[in-house]
Amino acid sequence: MGVNRMAVVPVVQPVAFPHRVHVDSETVGLSCDICHAGALTQTGAGIPPLWLCASCHAAMPTESDAARDLKAFIDTDRPIPWQRVWRLPAHTFFSHRTHTAVAGIDCAACHGDMASLDAPPIVPLKTLTMADCIACHTREQGGERQVDQRRGGQGPVRPVSASSSPGGDADCTACHR
C-alpha cells in the first residue's frame, strides 16, 4: 500500500490549457460538465475527448504555442495524454455524483478556483487527504466524531459504528475498498 498522497510532484501538461477563457461567460462560457461529462452523473468526472476540443479548435487560428500544440494533436488525431493532478490511491472510493449532484457541493470546495486559471494547475489547488474528507463529513453531520490522536489527528481510528449515512460516514469501508 504505502504512502500514496496526492500529487506533490509538479505536473506538466502536453497542452497549456487555460480554464478561464473556456469557462468565463464573457468568452466561451462552457459549463464544467460539458468537458467533465461525469462530474454530475458518474463516479469519475472524466477528461474531455479530443473531438470535443476539435469541434471548436479545428477551424481556429493557431497563433500561440498552446494553440499550435493542440493543433498538432488534432491534425494527427492523437488523443492528448493529459496527466492527472488530483488522484486518490486505488484503495479508496470516491464518487463525484454523490458530492455534486446529490450533496450539491461546488467544484471549488474541493478543487479550488479552477475557473480562474490561465494555465493548467501543476499541483492540486487544494489537497484532499483522508483528514480533509473526514473534516467535511464531520462538519456536514454537525456532530462529534471520535478522532484518534495516534494518527496525528488524521482521522478516526476506531470505526464509529451505527452512524447513519446522511452527511457521510466515518465507517472506514465507506471510502476504503
Binding site: 500500500m1 490511491p89 484503495h91 481510528v157 476506531r158 470505526p159 459504528s161 451505527a162 452512524s163 460516514d169 465507517d171 472506514c172 469501508t173 476504503h176
Partner: peptide
C-alpha cells in the same frame, strides 16, 4: 490491534488494507 478489521454498520466484516 489497529482496528483494520471491524464489523461495519451493515454487519459486514470489513478489512481496511491500508490500516
Amino acid at each position: 490491534p489497529v482496528f483494520a478489521t471491524f464489523r461495519d454498520h451493515n454487519g459486514t466484516v470489513g478489512q481496511v488494507y491500508a490500516q
